[in-house]
Design a protein around this nucleic acid. Structure first.
Length: 758
RNA sequence: UGGGGUAUCGCCAAGCGGUAAGGCACUAGUUUUUGGUACUGGCAUUCGGGGGUUCGAAUCCCUCUACCCCAUCCA
């Protein structure tokens, strides 16, 4: 867990502290109608993670309320995903379909309460009745049906007496609700369909909005965490649970932003499209962001979990850079896996002055990885190196083999180029080199300096392997569809050459192919005859980046221009208020504007003014503090009165209290409705303006923070606020901030060290 | 257009009236038989824009703007 808490954990902690719940119970509630992807992983990490962190538990629940799209193969994939990520649901795998009988009873209860009715409008009529975002809807004539009739109809719906679509059960809420979701939402629909678990018992199925909240309640969920698109559904969630008048505690829903990653797609529809069009080999294609895909590619569950932890949880729609994910897997594998040598694009090297062969001892791990293990590395006259690692006309800064520049063979000798052999087309087919006998790795006495060490394999012993190079599936950062697929997302190398120990010794299933990247023995296609390795992720490549940058031109980045919208004109009455406030009372136009445009505010202000004619101070309090309270409440609901605000202003005006204390007093008034004078008196909030009393506190703060004093003297003037804040804190906010400010500045300057003062 | 959300560095993201956390990316350097790793340093005088309140505002108030979600018998 990262050190700062996310907003969900903050809520959970508060609820635990306040005693709202004794135990934290969350749930991961996927619909089994598709393969889980990394977005699900985020949800799994959140739900199971929070349960783990607060010693509660998390249920795995299949939200299987739609028989036409769901299948048992998906529930297996979902279970696999949770399991692979390392979470344990114990006995707690649940299915919404198991609650169908209970859900039915709740529906009956709602009907009996007169809160639900059977509607027999067809789909089209229902849409027409729903209205639009700006116009209210119209209630169906069937909403008039009696409880008895509704009960009868609903039972017959259940019994399968009606055709699909002929009737639905709806909640009776409000057809003119601003929230469209609340316009008598559907609770049940008729579906004569076979359910993969419930079989043919039911011919009616509950809708999400009815089933989900109640399933949460039935399972004793405390925090129902879902994604942002369900924000509008929260009102129904609350309505159902509250209307049913259930025994507490009940769950509450909170929403977080779903995961988006650039250069990939996350929607079930688009994923399905990729699979069905044959663009990828299946749900577990290593290029897919599915859990099965990452697993097949060679990602570790740890790396996915770290990623989920790093990206955080918030409510802003966001698009995470794939580089963040790639960092997580590299970082995880760096300390875990053996380094081996594999040549992807072989170039033959003949060491003219070497005869015979030898076996080199080579560690599987570099010095900075605290793991043990070595392998035998055959070395001989004929070897292969990477074609890229030789350059006849090297660019500036090229560290590898050139006609003039020697290079070290990793774990072996230094070689120098003697002759470049080309075919008729001018293609380099072989390099003849000389090795330096005294330069053997570990006992080098040659004194030759090389710029780099390259990987290689001995020609006779190397094994032929297939390597699948995966790159991002889409060429666009925000892909729309199939047309944005990256044509080079998969490159298959049939004839890569790998050192023998990888195949014979099999020290691991994941490797770092030295200087190239991390690779994974494909769990499906790997065989003794043709070993297959999937590229998980490349190593960071600062040389490649440097080369690329040279050819790239900087693209201009235009700064976005902010357009200012037009402010609505004031009504005649508002204008009259405004004029009086600015002309007669000499209010700041902005403050006057705020007051004048809000009838509640101007009335409140005028009333306060009658108790104490201090137009400016009162206007400031009303336009700022009172305005805030009036956002949520009507005037009648306020605990405090206009006269009390007038009294508060008086104390500010005569400097009994500072404006800082006034805010505290105001907060108290909001809650208790007590007189400000009384609050000030009982809490002893009268401000301290006497420098003699304040000075020692400043001295103390200065003495305690020598570092910040130094920083301040070095020119960080922002620190003045820090010192003022500390002093204010030490006096419980009672020190007169203006006095403190002056005094602190003076005292701090006295601290300029002696030498500088001379 | 009504309602509900969201805006802090290239990408995530802390922050809740008193010194703008952290990670990725980028960048400079040190170490290195991986152009890897590790390490050190640099990366927001400013928080979507404009005003206001305050000794002090990313945080409070007003206002404007941009983006996302909602009118499936999907979830």
């Amino acid at each position: 867990m990262s050190e700062s808490k996310d907003f969900l954990r903050s809520i959970v902690e508060e609820d635990l502290k306040s005693g709202k719940y004794r135990e934290i119970v969350t749930r991961f509630p996927p619909e089994p109608n598709g393969f889980p992807h990394i977005g699900h992983a985020k949800s799994i990490a959140i739900n199971f993670g929070i349960a783990r962190d607060y010693h509660g538990h998390c249920n795995l629940r299949m939200d299987d309320t739609n028989p036409t799209t769901e299948d048992t193969k998906y529930v297996e994939a979902l279970k696999d995903a949770v399991d692979w990520l390392g979470f344990d649901w114990g006995e707690r795998v649940y299915f919404t379909s198991d609650y169908f009988p209970k859900l039915y009873d709740y529906a009956v209860k709602l009907i009996k309460m007169g809160k639900a009715y059977v509607d027999s409008l067809n789909e089209e009529e229902m849409r027409a009745h729903r209205g639009t975002v700006t116009e209210a809807g119209k209630r169906s004539i069937f909403a008039e049906r009696s409880v008895e009739e509704n009960l009868d109809l609903f039972e017959r719906m259940k019994n399968g007496e009606f055709k699909d679509g002929s009737h639905v059960l709806r909640a009776k809420i409000d057809m003119s609700a601003a929230n469209m979701k609340m316009r008598d939402p559907l609770l049940y629909r008729i579906r004569h369909a076979h359910h993969f678990r419930a079989g043919d018992t039911w011919s009616i199925y509950p809708m999400y909005d009815f089933a989900h909240c109640l399933s949460d309640y039935i399972e004793g969920i405390s925090h129902s965490l879902c994604t942002l698109e369900f924000e509008n559904n929260r009102d129904i969630y609350d309505w159902v649970l509250d209307t049913l008048d259930l025994e507490p505690p009940r769950p509450y829903q909170y929403e977080f932003a779903r995961l988006g990653i650039n250069y990939t797609v996350m929607s079930k529809r688009k994923l399905l499209e990729l699979v069905e069009s044959g663009q990828v080999s299946g749900w577990d294609d290593p290029r897919l962001p599915t859990i099965a895909g990452y697993k097949r590619r060679g990602y570790t569950p740890e790396s996915i979990l770290t990623f989920c932890d790093q990206i955080g949880i918030a409510k802003a729609n966001s698009m995470v850079d794939v580089a963040q994910l790639e960092f997580c897997i590299r970082d995880d594998l760096n300390t875990k896996v053996p380094r081996v040598m594999c040549v992807l694009d072989p170039l033959k090297i003949t060491i003219e002055n070497y005869e015979g062969s030898e076996i080199l001892d080579a560690s599987y791990y570099p010095e900075d990885v605290p793991k043990e293990g070595t392998r035998k590395l055959p070395f001989s006259k004929e070897i292969y190196i990477e074609r890229d690692d030789f350059n006849e006309n090297p660019p500036k800064g090229y560290f590898r083999l050139t006609p003039e520049q020697p290079v070290r063979l990793k774990h072996g000798y230094i070689i120098s180029c003697k002759e470049v052999i080309k075919d008729a087309q001018g293609e380099i087919v072989e390099i003849k080199v000389h090795y330096h006998p005294e330069s053997k790795s570990g006992s080098d006495s040659s004194g030759i300096k090389v710029k780099s060490a390259i990987h290689w394999v001995s020609a006779a012993e190397a094994k032929r392997v297939e390597v699948r190079l995966y790159d991002r599936l889409f060429k666009e950062e925000t892909p729309e569809g199939l047309e944005d697929v990256n044509p080079d997302s998969l490159k298959i190398i049939k004839n890569a050459l790998i050192e023998p120990s990888v195949i014979t010794q099999k020290p691991d299933e994941r490797f770092q192919f030295e200087r190239q990247g991390y690779f994974y023995a494909d769990p499906v296609d790997y065989s003794e005859e043709t070993p297959v390795f999937n590229k998980i992720v490349g190593l960071k490549d600062s040389w490649g980046k440097k080369k690329k940058k040279r050819s790239e031109t900087a693209k201009p980045q235009a700064k976005k221009v902010q357009i200012d919208g037009e402010v609505a004109a004031m009504s005649a009455q508002e204008q009259a208020h405004f004029d009086r406030y600015t002309a007669e009372l000499e209010l700041n136009p902005e403050v006057a504007n705020t007051l004048a445009r809000d009838a509640q505010l101007s009335t409140f202000y005028d009333e306060a003014l009658r108790a104490n004619h201090s137009p400016v101070t009162i206007a400031n309090i009303v336009s700022n503090e009172v305005a805030r309270e009036l956002k949520e409440n009507q005037v009648a609901a306020l605990q405090f009165s206009a006269a009390q605000i007038a009294q508060l202003a008086e104390m500010i005006d005569d400097e009994t209290i500072s404006s800082k204390i006034a805010k505290r007093v105001f907060e108290e008034m909001v809650i208790s409705g007590e007189d400000p004078k009384q609050i000030v008196e009982s809490k002893g909030l009268i401000q301290i303006s006497d420098p003699v009393k304040i000075a020692p506190i400043i001295d103390e703060v200065i003495a305690k923070n020598p570092d910040n004093v130094a920083k301040f003297l070095a020119g960080n003037t922002k620190l003045l606020g820090f010192f003022v804040g500390q002093v204010l804190k030490n006096t419980g906010g009672k020190a007169n901030p203006k006095v403190v400010n002056e005094l602190v500045a003076k005292k701090l300057n006295e601290h300029i060290p002696e030498p500088e003062r001379c």
